[in-house]
Design a protein around this nucleic acid. Structure first.
Lengths: 344, 344
DNA sequence: TTGAAAGCGGTACCAG
DNA sequence: CTGGTACCGCTTTCAA
């Protein structure tokens, strides 16, 4: 059973393909105008056959796909999920569909995916890259073809003429460190679980700078590197706690890992925040629901997604808009996972 | 700057479009065979221009899009995220892209989205519907066009000739209830937060049946209905606890809401599981990381997604496969959020 | 008021 | 070994 085409409809209604097209697209008013009677005949035939215009053919003709692409590094992290959710909402409300690709933190796939997306005549593209340098050429091409393109988390190398939604925890991280220091913490661990060194740089440097400013040593064994999953956060926290029992506060690179860390803490019989404070970044929905609710630096990821999508659409409407450069910074949210340092 | 087409390449290489096509598709061996020299000329021209075949045109020709569609009810629930993640993994590994649509629990959008997907010549479709009845006609059409189509969570009305991945918590829920009863719980609350009455039916009926079997009353005010978000789970648990302080155990329709409920419990100064036990369904990754780790009925959502995707692909390979009907049941996982009823 | 026909960018058959 | 060309399904001038 093949799907019916315009021709089938035209034949059944006894008109030409063009007429069908007019009726379907509601051009029956204005410059065209078609007899109400033929219009009804066509409409009837359409119903009869269950005809639906073929989106691919329309795309080929119009050069437009009604689709925007989103590339994220990892589907397991709620943070990216939330970004996707925001993008999806906005896309949906503009009548666009979302093509979602996760690179699973694989640089090759990142490149390959951008290629694949660009072959598809996607109307707009939002990239949350981790290995930017790899794809510069592709991006260059897309820009030259005037494709709406938004990069999130673009590092230092703000490519010319590209819309960027830059997120920075620098300020929030600094606030957080000051807050912890003011609570009397002097031995603060950092759990640094990232896909790529460059990610989370803002937090790492803020951490180091704050310690330095407070004339505290930035000991290497207070920093624990790990991967990006709950489990890895859990493991890393365990290692850190066992290695440096003196730590009174733990800064974790994101909420997900912090939740893993919470478990490691609980398993060692330590109470939060009486024995040890913990704080992290993102403020995913869960952050305020775990026990205790997490002190964190908020970055509304859904809003991030919505903002990126809006940038895409505004450029779609007006291609010669000057490159936008939205900068979003995190806000410290104090909850009950942090408290005064023990014996202070 | 327009993107180059086959014609441009052909012109630059001084050959015909056909030749370019052959080279691009590597048909240079076998029945076609092209001089290595021309091949190189074409390849060179391609590089020169940065030519990439247009996926839309290819789709129009082949009737194929290298895309599978996934419709989920809600992007905020990790359960559906995980399904999406599983589908994405499998799609990725088969070289397919994923078109993701969330209906945000809106029945109209559900219908509209299925329509939109079917206009797009999607190669396969996975539907996680909540309001099935609405879309029966559309589905009928897709089946007749032999589109690989998998329905998850299909209720009772297993449409003929459709691949179904049915999930049921019936057995797991029954096990869970027996387990709670064996721990001495006699007053067991249920938090029933679903998008649509029909969802979670398996758990509701298992809950009622178990109570009945134990000759316990199924009091209406032990059941609290609510929405699907963390916040609503939190609120609902609060209402239930305040209304019926006698409950010693709480069964929650899914882990997400259970995490919300945990907070409501903690805020009332109750300890888990000493004062009150709590158990739920899904076993999302977080379930074993919250404090205390949740007793839950496991349904590996990512695996669900992968299974659905595999069904799609196997039908893509062999369209006349008999309709598959995978039935996946949840397994009780006992962790530390459940314990003996107080004063037992 | 309606119809004929030229593409959109590729693919694949058939000739040469 | 390579080129010409019909076709995929739809839109949109241009003529009738």
């Amino acid at each position: 059973m093949k799907r019916p085409t315009q021709i089938d409809v035209a034949r059944l209604a006894g008109v030409s393909r063009a007429t069908v097209s007019y009726v379907v697209n509601g051009l029956t008013e204005g410059p065209i105008s078609i007899t109400e009677e033929t219009r009804q005949r066509v409409l009837h035939a359409i119903n009869e056959l269950g005809y639906q215009p073929d989106a691919m053919a329309q795309s080929l003709r119009s050069g437009t796909t009604n689709t925007i692409g989103l590339l994220i590094p990892d589907m397991h992290n709620p943070h990216y999920w939330q970004i996707a959710s925001g993008v999806e909402q906005e896309a949906q409300s503009e009548g666009y569909d979302l093509l979602l690709i996760s690179t699973s933190l694989d640089p090759d796939r990142e490149l390959h995916s951008v290629r694949s997306l660009s072959r598809r005549r996607i109307d707009g593209l939002i990239l949350v890259l981790t290995y930017e340098n790899q794809v510069n050429d592709e991006i260059e091409q897309l820009v030259q073809r005037r494709k709406p393109l938004v990069m999130m988390n673009a590092g230092i190398g703000n490519v010319d003429g590209i819309d960027v939604v830059a997120t920075s925890f620098q300020k929030g991280a600094t606030q957080l460190m000051e807050y912890l220091l003011s609570l009397g913490h002097r031995c603060i661990g950092l759990i640094y679980g990232v896909a790529h060194d460059q990610m989370g740089w803002d937090r790492l440097t803020a951490y180091q700078a704050a310690l330095q400013k407070a004339s505290l040593p930035t000991e290497d064994n207070l920093i624990e590197y790990c991967g990006t999953t709950l489990e890895e956060g859990y493991q890393a926290a365990g290692r850190l706690l066992d290695r440096s029992p003196r730590v009174t506060a733990l800064v974790v690179i994101n909420d997900l890992l912090a939740i893993g860390a919470l478990r490691a803490i609980a398993e060692r019989g330590l109470r939060v925040p009486e024995d040890i404070s913990i704080a992290s970044f993102d403020d995913i929905a869960l952050a305020s629901y775990v026990n205790p609710p997490l002190t964190t630096v908020r970055m509304d990821a859904e809003e991030l997604g919505r903002t990126s999508a809006r940038l895409v659409f505004s450029r779609l409407v007006n291609p010669k808009l000057a490159p936008q450069n939205v900068h979003i910074t995190g806000q410290l949210v104090i909850r009950s996972s942090t408290g005064p340092a023990p014996n202070h």
